[in-house]
Design a protein around this nucleic acid. Structure first.
Lengths: 221, 221
DNA sequence: GAATAGAACTAGCGGTCGTTAGTTTTCAGA
DNA sequence: TCTGAAAACTAACGACCGCTAGTTCTATTC
């Protein structure tokens, strides 16, 4: 057992542990887009394989089953969002102003446009396909967001029972914008995901939030 | 042309033209619930048949294919909503106040709780499965709603570019509430569809709308 | 450069899908 | 009550689904 640099069980990844991890990433990309657009049942492993230019059995070298692939897609997609919300929560509810959270989330959703549709597919399914682990991480988010709103400066006019419904409403406005983008383009012609429209939506959200939660302390009697 | 009662081609239905139309209605009910919950791809004709206690081929006596059944479900579900919105629009944009429309729609959605999920399933699919006829009827609704808001008393503070996005946001808040109900119950325990919660949501919506569109003319400078 | 494990492949299985053909039962109208 | 059509049924087809066994190619590691 001449150690040297030592063949210790798990040494840290140099940069990319195996070539296959790159393939796994490409599979996740393809599956994410397809699951978001067609849902779980509407997505076939054949579609995924075709999209990454592989044969179906090769997928099983990276993911044990279709369900496991779906869980991995969800985990990779939702993880970053939960982290961001966690950061905001850690900053202390006092300092976090709602408008800032919303702009941050909008930026994130613009980078991952598949995510809102993915989340809504899951919401429509009633969360039946959520990993227990993921469910545990998602569950507290809503309550924390409500606490944050309650502690924010301009929350005075809303009762404790109204705040959760307000949070839910803001969530629907945020993600609904992305979910409806394709249908909106089909029916009305405008592209909601274009930069100017996106900027308008962000500005509108800021205005709505500052109207519903007037930050100036002069408004409170 | 001696009319009388006359065996004229199509006389109005006495009450129920054929026994089979009742069966068709039961099939539509079952299919609506299943399509709303599991989506198009996730719903099986076997599931539908089981739900109405029939064998699969009997479904084909009433609907030519799975796609035709889906189109019929959508048509029957969305039709009443379009009519209500049409009524409001016909009343003249001047008289229709946004809060009234919202309460009316909420009442309607409470009666047809499957409808919002059905609509969102279609939105996620990008409207690819919309009948051309249905698409034509849905397309103008959004523009009309925007016109109505623009013409309403308290719309002064919003620009012409903001109004469509506001309408879209309100739409997402309205239907999102029903779409998220099951996931919300799963994660947080509260039943959004219970009467007290529903009343709270309605009241909150009224308050939000009157805040965003202050009706009192004293507010306009 | 040889050894070895990882990652791709071919071929195919069992099951379920939407759909059809053909037959029997049920029901409305004379 | 009789008759014809509407509406239910049985049986089964071809296509596609997720998945597996077994094999070949490829890349990492001494």
């Amino acid at each position: 057992m001449p150690s040297g640099p030592s063949t210790d069980a798990e040494r840290d990844a140099p940069a990319l542990r195996r070539k296959g991890e790159l393939t796994a990433g490409r599979i996740l990309d393809a599956a994410e887009a397809l699951f978001a657009e067609y849902g779980y049942a509407g997505t076939t492993l054949r579609d995924v394989a075709t999209r990454v230019d592989l044969r179906i059995p090769s997928l099983y070298n990276h993911f044990a089953s279709k369900e496991a692939l779906y869980a991995a897609v969800l985990e990779r997609g939702i993880g970053p969002v939960l982290e961001i919300l966690g950061e905001f929560n850690a900053q202390g509810a006092s300092r976090g102003n709602p408008a800032a959270v919303i702009e941050r989330v909008m930026q994130l959703l613009q980078r991952y446009p598949n995510l809102p549709r993915l989340v809504f597919q899951e919401a429509l399914a009633g969360g039946h396909r959520l990993t227990p682990m993921l469910r545990e991480r998602i569950a507290p988010v809503f309550g924390r967001a409500s606490e944050m709103v309650v502690a924010s400066p301009g929350a005075g006019r809303w009762t404790a029972e109204q705040v959760p419904l307000l949070v839910l409403a803001m969530y629907h406005v945020l993600v609904g914008y992305f979910v409806s983008a394709s249908l909106f383009a089909d029916l009305n012609g405008g592209d909601l995901l274009s930069p100017p429209m996106f900027a308008q939506q962000t500005a509108l959200l800021r205005e709505i939030v500052t109207t519903l939660f007037p930050a100036d302390p002069i408004a409170t009697p």
